[in-house]
Computed example of a mutant assay.
Amino acid sequence: MFRVMSELYHNRVLELAAGIPHVGDLESPDGSVLKVSRVCGSTVKVDLTLDEAGERVTAIAVDPKACALGQAATSILAEHAVGATIEEIIAARDALKDMLKDNGPPPEGRFWELRHLEPVADYPPRHTSTLLAFEAAVAAIDEALASRGSSRAAVN
């Protein structure tokens, strides 16, 4: 049974969408990726830098042009990415995808607020835009690691 649309756009989702931190561009990102939803046309660009070891995010900038759901997910990513390990970001992306597509549990840890997007699971056309920021972040991590010639790449 489909949930009412008001459950999708509840107050916390709207607060997150309205308060996205780190909007803009980084001057010299290690990775920079723009992801586009072919379903709705939403876009999210993620720039990031990694620490010297290539294990943690040291800076992030985002440029979302997405619906409130995509903006809320971008806000959660941008708020908590600095200091996160690449494994944490990949795990959050995978858990978010599992929550939306396979009724998995909400992500935990530093990206726990993605649980506010759980009602999106009932609206498959909204899945892609909700996942854009984390898909872009993982792709930017891949780009950053590849530019360093790292043999360790993020899992797509």
Rank of each mutant, 00 (worst) to 15 (best):
A133D: 06
E143R: 13
L48F: 15
L132P: 14
G149M: 07
D98E: 07
L131M: 09
P125D: 00
A84L: 11
R126S: 05
A154T: 06
T130P: 04
F134T: 05
L34R: 15
D25A: 15
I141Y: 10
D51G: 12
A18V: 06
P64W: 06
A91I: 08
Y123E: 00
L16V: 01
D122Q: 05
G109W: 04
A59F: 10
T43C: 11
A59N: 11
P119M: 04
E88V: 01
G104F: 01
A53L: 09
L48M: 14
E108P: 07
A84N: 06
T58Q: 11
V155G: 11
T49D: 12
A146H: 07
L145G: 01
S75M: 04
L117D: 00
G41P: 12
P29A: 01
P105C: 05
Q71S: 11
I89C: 05
P124N: 09
E88M: 04
G31L: 08
A140M: 08
R56C: 09
K101P: 02
H116F: 02
A153R: 13
G41C: 11
P124F: 08
A137W: 02
G83R: 14
S129K: 09
P105S: 11
Q71R: 13
W112A: 13
G109A: 03
A73L: 05
V13A: 00
G149Y: 09
V13Y: 00
H10E: 03
R115I: 14
V46H: 10
D94N: 05
Y9A: 00
I90M: 11
P21G: 13
V23F: 08
K45V: 15
S32N: 11
D63G: 14
M1R: 03
I89G: 03
L117K: 01
C67I: 05
R3A: 13
T58E: 14
A140I: 04
N103I: 02
V23P: 08
P106E: 04
S75Y: 04
E15N: 12
A73M: 07
G149K: 02
R148A: 09
A146W: 08
A17S: 10
F2L: 00
G70S: 03
D63N: 15
F134L: 12
E55H: 12
S151A: 14
